[in-house]
């Protein structure tokens, strides 16, 4: 098992955002976590990154308990993160954003190779390498957020709603990228999405979250017929 989340309970003050959540993901898999707005999807990824402290439960990465470790240790373990709403560094250039993504890498050669790999995946980013991130279009910004998460050559990439706020054509591009990361680069991906239909097309397995609880865990092809999943289809 690459990543295992065991009985995780997370609060914001008195609000319980996650209630005894357990999920796991093996190397090479793409696992989707779907659920409507406020279900706790972002909180799950933030807990895995160490950005919120869970009240209860454990997070195991390659067998090691990382629950209490600070976020930068996660980066050192090569957990890549694409936050909700992209959260680029607006006043850094495209290339500087990528270099921050590679902050834990010490070897200049390796950083250069990663930069090449990301530019190969997103040639548009190379064209705009010395532009400030804040000048990018929504689609380009999402490419950069994904590219930044890929800079560490992640053992697992956590993606939080990469399709949020994008035009339908761009959403398709983003999901094409995710497919090619899966098929060609063999990247393990934990994908959080409100766009259940699209998420189920690329995922192997899926967890459905509802008010902080896992209410369904199934293979992606089975989940498509589940009534609760279909409700989410209609909702968003």
């Amino acid at each position: 098992m690459l990543l295992r989340v065991e009985n995780l309970t997370t609060y914001y003050g008195k609000i319980m955002a996650l209630d005894n959540v357990s999920i796991d993901i093996s190397e090479g898999e793409v696992v989707a976590v779907i659920g409507r707005n406020g279900a706790g999807k972002t909180t799950l990824l933030r807990s895995i990154m160490g950005l919120v402290k869970p009240a209860k439960g454990r997070i195991l990465f390659r067998g090691e308990d990382i629950t209490g470790k600070p976020p930068w240790i996660r980066a050192k373990l090569r957990i890549g993160y694409v936050p909700e709403g992209r959260r680029l560094f607006p006043y850094l250039t495209v290339e500087e954003n990528l270099l921050v993504g590679a902050y834990t890498l010490k070897d200049k050669e390796e950083i250069y190779r990663r930069l090449e790999a990301v530019y190969r995946l997103f040639p548009r980013l190379e064209e705009r390498r010395s532009q400030l991130a804040r000048t990018l279009s929504g689609g380009e910004a999402q490419m950069l957020a994904i590219g930044r998460g890929l800079m560490v050559n992640p053992r697992i990439l956590l993606m939080d709603e990469p399709s949020m706020g994008l035009a339908p054509k761009i959403v398709d591009e983003v999901f094409d990228t995710i497919s090619s990361l899966k098929e060609e680069e063999k990247v393990t991906i934990l994908l959080v999405e409100q766009n259940a239909r699209k998420a189920l097309e690329v995922a192997d397995r899926v967890y459905l979250l509802d008010t902080g609880r896992v209410v369904l865990h199934a293979r992606a092809d089975e989940a498509r017929n589940d009534l609760r999943v279909r409700k989410i289809y209609l909702g968003g």
Binding site: A75, R87, F89, E96, V100, V152
Partner: peptide, 24 residues
């Protein structure tokens, strides 16, 4: 320098800077 890059990143988004491996 790396210190400069890390400082700018931290100023712009402390949380994401941490998630990218910067010991803030």
């Amino acid at each position: 320098t790396r210190l400069g890059l890390a400082s700018k990143a931290l100023i712009q988004d402390l949380e994401v800077a941490e998630a990218m491996g910067i010991e803030t």
